[in-house]
Design a protein around this nucleic acid. Structure first.
Length: 306
RNA sequence: GGGGGGGCGCCGGAGUAGGAGAGCCGGGCCGGUCUGUAAAAUCGGUGCCUAAGUUGCUGAGUGGGUUCGAUUCCCACCCCCCCCA
């Protein structure tokens, strides 16, 4: 049985399509399960802000790896990969089809392939590097890296300079796999579907989605989460920056506009990632219903013999 | 009606004491990078014609003028903002 993976920009309708696919599969006796593949939806308490599947949606399709990490915890692609591999393998063992759903490109690649991600470094080293990065700036640390390793990393790229520096200080060899994260080699037979949509229409859907988020209490959720002291990886969620400025009361129109813009920019980066993925089957869903798209996806599964 | 400020690029802003802007800053938009922080971080492009410009083309509200040279100075007109009536 093939793993089904649904990728695409935010607001393109991945969850709805996944549910429609699941319903079709159930009609033929399958018992599919969605496996979340979104770096923010893993957090408990950020469901509205991250646009996670609602309770009603989860009733229609069981979701795994959703809302299972405390916001105070730091999460990572590596931890996600372990959890996802375990989940996918055990579902397949029981004859249940995993449907990977989510827009975090690195997490999707990590779930589908064995990426051989480098291990984390001891916290002391990370803290030391963080401190130096703050004091001396990324350019200084970049200059001290092995030129071979630093190839392709911009001196201003704080995250990557920090990561390469901490690996070097911990004595860990950086990964050197030529294929890298773009490998088309997967752990399990997979149908990888990328949903696309006319840009203007996608922008409208993003606007609507953000407005619905606000109505559903995204600002309150963000404030509550912030008070509880979220980890750095959790605070990366779009919305914290935009929505917490208005300490009480409804978010301003400016705040909402800037959140919409942030989501559009995010969608753009997701599309960049999607174009680069190998073996992805793109489906333009502009003007087409969830059911139509679901039928097409199931047909493609059939072409592979399941 | 009088006085003042201002009109360029998708939008906003700054600047040019006549001497090369399709130049600068911010936003938007578009594209790229990505190996345990990835909704992060980061790079580039954005008048027109180009596969490519080191001598390409058009442009600074409109029309004239001065000048070797005008986005800048002068005249007239149009439009926007502020103040006074």
């Amino acid at each position: 049985m093939r793993v089904l993976a649904l990728f695409g920009p935010t607001a393109v309708g991945k969850t709805e399509v996944a549910i429609a696919v699941a319903e079709l599969l159930r009609e033929r006796g399958e018992d599919p399960v969605a496996v979340n593949c979104d770096s923010i939806q893993v957090y408990r308490g950020l469901e509205v802000l991250s646009g996670a599947a609602t309770a009603a949606e989860r009733q229609r399709l069981e979701h795994r790896l959703l809302s299972f990490v405390e916001p105070a915890e730091e999460f990572s692609a590596g931890r996600y990969a372990e959890a996802a591999h375990r989940e996918i393998d055990s579902l397949l063992d029981r004859g249940r089809r995993p449907i990977l759903v989510g827009g975090t490109g690195l997490y999707l690649r990590a779930a589908l392939s064995d990426l051989d991600l480098r291990p984390p470094v001891p916290p002391e080293i990370r803290e030391e590097v963080e401190r130096e990065l703050g004091e001396r700036g990324p350019q200084a640390l970049h200059a001290e890296l092995d030129p071979e390793v630093a190839v392709g990393v911009d001196p201003n790229d704080r995250k990557r300079v920090a990561r390469l520096t901490e690996l070097a200080r911990a004595g860990i060899e950086p990964a050197a796999d030529a294929e890298g994260i773009w490998t088309a080699t997967v752990r399990r037979p997979t149908l990888l579907v990328g949903l696309t949509m006319d840009r203007g229409e996608l922008a409208q859907r993003i606007d609507r989605r953000v407005e619905e988020m606000i109505v559903a209490g995204a600002a309150e959720e963000a404030r509550a989460a912030l008070e509880a002291g979220p980890s750095r990886t959790a605070t990366a969620a779009l919305g914290f920056e935009q929505l917490v400025a208005d300490v009480d009361g409804a978010p301003s129109a400016e705040a909402i506009d800037s959140l919409k813009a942030a989501h559009r920019a995010y969608a753009r980066r997701q599309l960049t990632w999607m174009r680069r993925m190998e073996g992805v089957e793109l489906i333009d869903r502009t003007g087409r219903s969830d059911d139509e798209i679901a039928a097409e996806i199931v047909a493609r599964l059939d072409r592979f013999g399941g």
